[in-house]
Design a protein around this nucleic acid. Sequence first.
RNA 1: GGGCCGUUAGCUCAGCUGGUAGAGCACCGGACUCUUAAUCCGGGUGUCACAGGUUCGAUCCCUGUACGGCUCACCA
Length: 494
Amino acid sequence: MLETEKPLSEPLQVKLEKIKRLRKQGKTLYGGGFAPDAKVADLKKEFDSLEQGQKSGESFGIAGRIIIFRKHGKATFCDLKDSTGKLQLYLSQKVVGEERYQEFNELDIGDWIGVEGHLFKTRTGELSLSVDDFNLLTKSVRILPEKWHGLKDRELRYRQRYLDFLVNPEVREVFEKRIMVIDSIREFLKNEGFYEVETPMLQTLPGGATARPFITHHNALDLELYLRIAPELYLKRLIVGGFEKVFEINRNFRNEGLSYRHNPEFTMLEFYEAFSDYKRLILFTQRLIKYAAAKVGSLEITYRGKGISLSGDWKSLSMTDSIKEIGGLEVGFGMEIEKLASIAKGLGIEISDDFGKGKIIAEIFEVLVEPKLVDPTFITDFPTEISPLAKRNPKDPDLVERFELFIGGEEIANAFSELTDPSEQLQRFRKQSKSSDEEERLSGRIDKDFIKALEYGMPPTGGEGIGIDRLVMVLTDSQSIKDVLLFPLMKPGS
RNA sequence: GGGCCGUUAGCUCAGCUGGUAGAGCACCGGACUCUUAAUCCGGGUGUCACAGGUUCGAUCCCUGUACGGCUCACCA
């Protein structure tokens, strides 16, 4: 027990005394050397059809954590939980002898034990293991949370996630689904011929997105470094280098506020495909997300109380059309900027002086349309002003070849035909770096090495980012990003 | 960072108008050889988040602090 943690409750003190006593008696509390030869789920499957009164011919060894006792004098039932499920153990004094039986009854909920015995079915038909021998593998000192109500306190659940997994089985399912989503995306992309790569987390210029970075320092080089806010500029360098299809699934770090959909570190998929473009990515994205959704369950999902169908062809709308159709407002680049600004102000949007038409339209979109995009919808034709890395629409310089995908009101994907013209890229960066917005300025700090790479020639390329945490939230109907992160950021407890 | 709400036993929760706290699980002692939240008998184990203030008296009222939740802002 941590010495700093005092006073101890009486049940805890009693347990500590007991452990002291067991130690004095020379008992091994932290053992080892027991290798289970079976998993609970496998045994349950194999002996499902066992008749009552019948015993498995073979003896099996399993290991797990005791989660509950039901003691009956000279017989004891308890449930043992391993990574695959729980199995009832039956221990009879007649079988193991009085001394061993006493020792078993000194075990506590939470202890890890290894047991050996035969399988049988109880009177009520529950498959159980009749214990012939057992050993304590690890003594649990602390008292586990309650079996019935589980652990509800969100703070404790996030801070002590291991307990959350122990007593709230549905939490484990969410993370198993998260693992499946990531596995299936990898599988899909690899089948499509993509290489998985790793690009720098520590960057000398935080590029590829607009966000405040975490700043750190390299001692030996006496160099200011930034935790990456996006891998984009490095992945594009690989396209320049002749890799035609690359992806990375990894963490990005953004020094921004927290919310139900923001954690300072989050997992992003970015992939780039030479000779593709945003239109082809629309089709590709549908296939990718449908593939992942099908692997974890179904294309018919529920998110925040709303049924969402991922089947069929997903809707696609330009940003201004969506504002008209869903927001009921007609806006466009043909309007005077003053007019756009006053519409935005009427919606409670704050407009700075350096906002252009594009940024104002995007703000209106965010307020009026975004939350209403429940069924999967691609929004296309983003303003150039807010898309410094995307290729301009050849027919309309105000717009770029870009889309974002929304599901359940959440932004899931962001993709565009990449800007490949080095001089235009330089200009766009320069414009950004003059912005009054501190983050924009920092993000726009010109990565000359990246421009140089473009000067060597990047083939026409489609690139996309998918927020994995958001996608998992939608696919698991999780109300907070913290519920899909194993260890969400928490301030140190008091 | 702003607003609102919360923090009582290891866990889940009660606690009236201010009179120093109580229930289930867990735990401890006892009974019990097929239980399933086993049952039965007995036992309450607490810095009421923390620090001040008001009061004869504070878990309760007030102020501040910490942490969390929701929400707004920033962002994905």
